[in-house]
Design a protein around this nucleic acid. Structure first.
Lengths: 171, 171
DNA sequence: GGGCTCATGTAAGTGGTTACATGATTAT
DNA sequence: ATAATCATGTAACCACTTACATGAGCCC
């Protein structure tokens, strides 16, 4: 029963507590997004698949508002998540970075144009860094350790790229 | 005439000289791959589209061996590449990192299991770092500056992640 | 009344990978 | 002889994004 990585994002979020698809998406946007994004177009169909496979179960909650279905892990889903977390095998890693791509081909550009490009790349990463700093309180308030550590990594990671751009700009 | 990023990879590679689809793929694998990968399934159809759009032109070379078609940039293709290199707008940036994802959900794991996970992540990045170091001579022999700079970034980047893993492992 | 957040979904499209089919030339 | 490399391409599939449709409740 080959699950996609995004399926594990959902299982992981559900282990932290019963949640709706909407809540999962909101959580992803303030946590895993910078190293694993997910859209509604993935989440809702995946919830359906996971439910059909018996890894999660949804419960209708008529809270007066619009109908909502909150999901929780079944024993089977809990086991599947653990299996994935502790399994060996290669860890998928992929980077797509248009800035580096442009820089790679930048030899024919003028010095000014190259500096401008570096500034643009740095700007993007500064922006992401600020976004990550903004969600720090949320992560720290969760009571969990790992999300904070990963977030700190994210901030340090953006810092690293920002510094590298600055250094190159000065040359 | 919206071009995909991968189309620009092709245009960029062709500006460096006339090349076949096979050669482009080989070049990508020893240069842009770690921040922008491309497969034959993308390259050959994209070459066709670019030719139809008049951005590149192919010339059959009957070199005795199997029929091969080497492509070069047209003026139009050259201009399109320059436009992209100097245009403003947001730079697409995306990371997918299964290791960080697992780490994010690792609170329920034992200390040993978490350390094992960190070691696995570090191992992957050490492996990529060695691959990048191995292609250093190729980049340096190209006579171009930018590819070397970007490669050095790649190595430093892998180093950064390796160090971060080591630090966490010791805790 | 208007805009925001909560909430659920789907359809169309994009971008990309994997696996396959084919075959000549070159190196061991 | 046989394995690796050069070389071209396609079909099926997968993962993901974007845009849309719908609508209730809540705050100003």
């Amino acid at each position: 029963m080959q699950l996609s990585k995004t399926a594990y994002v959902i299982l992981g979020m559900l282990r932290m507590g019963k949640r709706t698809g909407y809540e999962i998406k909101s959580l992803v946007d303030v946590s895993t997004r910078f190293f694993w994004a997910a859209s509604y177009g993935q989440i809702y169909p995946e919830l359906k698949r996971l439910e059909d496979a018996g890894l999660i179960e949804g419960e209708a909650e008529a809270t007066g508002g619009r109908a909502r279905r909150a999901f929780s892990l079944t024993k089977k889903g809990d086991a599947a998540l653990d299996d994935w977390l502790t399994s060996g095998g290669p860890l998928h890693f992929e980077l797509r970075h248009e800035g580096l791509l442009r820089l790679f081909f930048s030899d024919p550009l003028s010095g000014g144009e190259r500096t401008e490009l570096l500034r643009a790349i740095r700007g993007e990463h500064e922006r992401v860094r600020e976004e990550l700093r903004a969600i720090r309180p949320t992560a720290e308030g969760s009571g969990l350790e790992a999300p904070v550590e990963v977030l700190e990594f994210g901030i340090a990671y953006q810092d690293f790229i920002v510094d590298w751009c600055s250094r190159l700009e000065r040359r």
